[in-house]
């Protein structure tokens, strides 16, 4: 606070009307400022003049005698406790209302503080809920994937366990001498399973494609797939009915989105029947 600001509070303090932080600040300032102490004393004298403002009224006549009787009684038996009990308001003690004001301020601050804590707890909770919701979504997606994988496995099993299952072995060509594959298909449903081993990983632009080549027929495209790092793949496919009697099954490398006709090198092929 600037000194001028303190000076502006003096008149209000002289009327005992200062409250809140103003009162605190001025109280502290007056301890060190002689100028302001002098001025506030003068302003208190000015405030005292207000006692002239009311209508003049007289107390009852017997009050004088009562007061003098009190004084005489006091003189005769000096009661130390009472001597000390009355506080002289020249240096006025802080207003009792002042403490209440501070309690009020403290209560409000506490309230605001608690409010902030609750608000930040709420915001943290909101963030957590958001996080959990996202996690649930991720879990759901994974569950679906696993469910699909399981369904896929069941399809595979169904083919392999079928009484009408027929197995065709594929051997690696010059291009992929270590590659092997087994092709199992259900002669009734045409459902087929292909399991590969030892196939090199394709570049990101390419993938493997299955071909069904019935006798005297152009190659018919099957599924497009990729292998894992150990050259394994297991996919299900549907054998076209024309190819079920006798067909050569081949696997070539194609663009990753597949091809209508074989363009790449042959990696695996079944023996010509």
């Amino acid at each position: 606070m600037e000194h001028q600001e303190y000076k502006e509070l003096l008149a209000i303090s002289a009327l005992d009307a200062l409250d809140g932080t103003d009162a605190l600040h001025l109280e502290a300032h007056l301890k060190t400022c002689v100028e302001c102490r002098g001025e506030i004393s003068e302003l208190r004298d000015a405030a005292g003049l207000l006692a002239h403002a009311g209508p003049m009224q007289a107390p009852s006549e017997d009050l004088r005698a009562r007061i003098l009787a009190d004084v005489r009684a006091e003189k005769q038996s000096v009661r130390p406790s009472e001597r000390l009990s009355n506080v002289m308001p020249i240096a006025k003690p802080p207003k009792s209302g002042f403490t209440t004001q501070w309690l009020r301020i403290a209560a409000i601050l506490l309230f605001v503080g608690v409010g902030f804590v609750l608000l930040s707890m709420f915001l943290v909770a909101q963030r957590e809920i958001g996080k959990l919701t996202r996690e649930v979504e991720i879990q759901k997606t994974e569950l679906n994937r696993e469910r699909e994988a399981r369904m896929e496995d069941q399809k595979v099993l169904a083919v392999i366990m079928s009484r009408d299952a027929r197995t065709i072995q594929l051997a690696g060509t010059q291009t992929a001498q270590t590659a092997r594959a087994i092709f199992v298909f259900d002669q009734k449903s045409g459902r087929a399973v292909l399991m590969t081993d030892g196939l090199p990983m394709t570049s990101t632009e390419k993938a493997y494609e299955v071909w069904f080549i019935p006798k005297g027929h152009a190659p018919m495209p099957g599924k497009v797939f990729t292998v894992d790092s150990s050259g394994h793949a297991m996919i299900t496919d549907q054998m076209p009915s024309e190819a079920m009697k006798d067909a050569v099954i081949a696997i070539t490398v194609e663009p990753k989105s597949g091809s209508a006709a074989p363009t790449g090198a042959i990696y695996l092929a079944s023996p010509a029947s």
């Binding site: 209000i12 009327l15 005992d16 009307a17 409250d19 809140g20 103003d22 207000l50 403002a53 004001q101």
Partner: peptide, 14 residues
């Protein structure tokens, strides 16, 4: 002035 002096009110109360 009167409210402060005769009623003992603070600046805020006034």
């Amino acid at each position: 002035l009167f409210m402060a002096y005769f009623e003992g009110l603070t600046q805020t109360e006034i």
